[in-house]
Design a protein around this nucleic acid. Sequence first.
DNA 1: ACCAATTATTGCAGACCATGCAAACTTTCT
DNA 2: AGAAAGTTTGCATGGTCTGCAATAATTGGT
Lengths: 204, 204
Amino acid sequence: MGLRERKKQATRRALQDAAVSLILDRGLENVTVEEIAAEADVSTRTFFNYFATKEDALLGDVPGTPDEETRREFVNGGPTGDFVEDLITVLITFLVSTDDLATQRADMRLRRKLMEREPQLVRGMLARFHNVEMELAAAIAERTGVSPEDDQPLLVAASAMSVMRHTMKSLHFSESEETADVRAKIRAAFRHLGEAYGPSTPTS
Amino acid sequence: MGLRERKKQATRRALQDAAVSLILDRGLENVTVEEIAAEADVSTRTFFNYFATKEDALLGDVPGTPDEETRREFVNGGPTGDFVEDLITVLITFLVSTDDLATQRADMRLRRKLMEREPQLVRGMLARFHNVEMELAAAIAERTGVSPEDDQPLLVAASAMSVMRHTMKSLHFSESEETADVRAKIRAAFRHLGEAYGPSTPTS
DNA sequence: ACCAATTATTGCAGACCATGCAAACTTTCT
DNA sequence: AGAAAGTTTGCATGGTCTGCAATAATTGGT
């Protein structure tokens, strides 16, 4: 990666960090883009070269898109052949960004604090999940061979994203948390959904 | 209802209608609040007495909150005792506003057109569904006697709202469409979810 | 090391959204 | 009719975000 690219990443990072820290400190309404830019040592105009809105700088890069390889494997019926297990595999990749693991976990903890303090941000988060939902639906349609006009894949994708969303709330993002723990939590959530809506007696 | 109240309703209506029609015509970015207010024959300032944002005037009043009676019946295990069927009953009440049925159906058709033309609006719609999701989760927790800290009710509510969201897409909102049709569509969606995640063999 | 091409940053002007405030106006109630 | 309560309006203001054109930094070739 060349110098130019590295600098861009650094600026992006600086803007995000400045935004998060200032706003955790003083609240969303009491921090202007101008101040965020100043803190990151760039002009206000440059802020908008990096992020379309103030919110955007706060939300970070999660959920992202799964890499092409994971996607293809899922579409082709892998890796295990069990639909729910494979779905979980894909979902987990949404959580993983390009950063190193420790940084990313710290980011997640900060973001969660941010959401608690500024519920307006949930709006933007939901929008992001919605975008991912569409991609996931396409992948599910491909895997199951269902016509894209059908909205079954959309439905399954939507509820899968719900599971995702709520599971994230009960994660710790601590150093001791293993992928297996995450997987187990998601699995439990899916099982519960199956029980609630499934053919067997509704627990409720 | 007194004169004052009637006038307020009329103004609100006029603003919504002006917003929807102007923006269907010329696009979200090409219509200012000033123009909307002018079309409705009030000042710009008055617009903001009625709606917090431009989007708000477009989204209308759906989904609304179910009336207290329906809610209580659901919480107490009614009306049929079958969880999914009763859930559907509640969901349907989200769609019903105070207007007369014909007006409401026309509104729904317009709004859908609006969403297709201006996908940015989906954001706001999702936020509304999210609010309803919270209320629904509370009701489910009460009915099932699950602790409110538990996130099972949130999960079930979230996926129910997904079902809702996607079912609405395939409704016609035409004069010939009966409540029974709507119910059948929602029921089919739930059954599909149960099959996808449930204990039986995944269709996929 | 230099030059040219590409790409990033910046300042400026401007449109629009949204809010607070106080004055003018309308409905309501007695 | 007249006071009380609520609504509309204009004005001033602060903030977000965009387009544009000038300036500055990085890159790659020679």
